[in-house]
């Protein structure tokens, strides 16, 4: 894979992990064969991120308000692989699992981790999004012209 493809792949799994529900992430991580030891580069930390919008949706940025985010960074013991966790909300255990998955995805275990954790998370996310999109589609208005003024 090229550098750009690697970056895009990592962006995708980090984004998936950022919004993954804590209980399903925990349950899926429990299925992993081995959980490697690691050292903290940055222990989990709860903070806020200022969310920006754009004037008129497309113009100059403005500060809309903050959201809570938990982040951490770890290094797999005996290697130089570093995993980052950035998750929405205030759940330190979730951030730790996200960072561990990020690290493992850079090792030989990547294929197994993808199949065991990331694919089910992505499927659940797509299903939830699809369910809301289908409900929205059912509320799309079909107009019927009853009478026109010029007739």
């Amino acid at each position: 894979m090229t550098q750009a493809e690697n970056t895009e792949a990592r962006r995708n799994w980090l984004g998936l992990l950022a919004t993954a529900p804590g209980d399903s992430l925990a349950a899926l991580c429990d299925r992993l064969a081995n959980r490697p030891d690691f050292d903290w580069l940055r222990p989990p930390e709860i903070g806020s991120v200022m969310v920006r919008g754009r004037t008129g949706g497309t113009g100059a940025p403005f500060n809309l308000g903050e959201m809570t985010v938990t982040r951490c960074a770890l290094q797999l013991r005996g290697s130089d692989v570093v995993g980052h966790g950035y998750v929405q909300g205030r759940d330190k255990a979730r951030a730790e699992r996200a960072a561990l998955i990020d690290a493992l995805m850079q090792t030989d275990a990547a294929q197994a981790v993808r199949a065991t954790v990331l694919d089910p998370l992505a499927a659940a996310r797509d299903q939830a999004r699809g369910a809301r999109a289908s409900r929205a589609a059912a509320t799309r208005v079909e107009f019927f012209t009853m009478a026109r003024g010029e007739d």
Binding site: I46, G47, S48, V49, T58, P61, E66, R129, T139
Partner: peptide, 22 residues
Amino acid sequence: RTTLPRLGHSEPVDTGAMACER
């Protein structure tokens, strides 16, 4: 909110790409 460290700011959100429910 005042007790939270500020980790940074987001990219401006793209509301044009919103998954619209309404």
